[in-house]
Design a protein around this nucleic acid. Structure first.
Lengths: 139, 139
DNA sequence: TGTTTGACTTGGACAAAGTCCATTGTAGGA
DNA sequence: TCCTACAATGGACTTTGTCCAAGTCAAACA
């Protein structure tokens, strides 16, 4: 069983076929699927799974902090299962490909007090943009 | 006339009442309106302006690099007119308030070569998240 | 193992945000 | 002033996501 599923079970999740399939679809590194993509892959394994269940399940995983929502473009949110490995994202401006990246330094520390406007700052999300090797080759 | 409008005219834009109104609505610092908010304010000055025109105009401003699209949450894109003053954003996780911020350091330089996966990296977008003073007071 | 129950799933209606397009209008040059 | 290419309009359509009432089932318990 996957780590993700293991952790969810540990949190008292009732284990259903639907949830198992959604968790399995999300396995791996550099996985950044949209909800509809997750649904399409889930349907391959469990044809009767509904869109609403996929949305519900992804939403619960996010609330539990087991999956991260990533909004890299104007389109659908994407779901990243590596919630427990801090990282940021590198996105191809042309084809939308996404890679997980690990910058040096801590961007949180780079925000001076006089630029915090009294906010309690707890998190930072960094998105690098550029052109991937594939797209620059076929330019 | 606003700076924004001036620059757009310099780029050969045909000047229409609609475009003028959209540009005027976007004036100012810490302005991060959604397309619908822009439309609502534009309608106050020019009642017959259509939603499609607001979307088109904002889209053109973005393509020309005069306005930046900001996706701070799951909801609508927001439009930031300060495209020529490099900055990032600080967002309240509770009420959604947005401030422009200027971190020290250059996050682009923090991405090592071996984390670039062959991408030509050209831009970086940083979103800080936290709770604004107003929301932490009324917790 | 069978029963029970509340959590889970379903499918369809609904909503928000954004795009597309045929038609109509108009800015700005000749 | 007239022309024409560019721009605006508004309504249909698409995509993405939410909500809900009714049915289903995982797992605790006897």
């Amino acid at each position: 069983m996957s780590d993700l599923l293991e952790r969810l079970r540990g949190r008292g999740w009732r284990m259903t076929a639907q949830r198992r399939v959604v968790a399995e679809v999300l396995e791996g590194d550099h996985v950044h699927l949209t909800a509809d993509e997750v649904h399409a892959r889930a349907v391959d394994r469990l044809p009767e799974i509904s869109r609403a269940t996929v949305y519900n399940t992804l939403g619960e995983m996010v609330s539990l902090g087991e999956v991260i929502e990533v909004s890299t473009d104007r389109r659908a949110k994407r779901y990243d299962p590596n919630a427990h490995r801090p990282h940021h994202h590198l996105v191809c401006a042309r084809c939308g490909a996404i890679r997980d990246v690990h910058p040096s330094g801590n961007p949180l520390a780079d925000l001076p007090d006089d630029e915090r406007f009294g906010f309690t700052v707890s998190d930072v999300e960094v998105t690098y943009r550029g052109i991937c090797p594939n797209c620059s080759a076929t330019a």
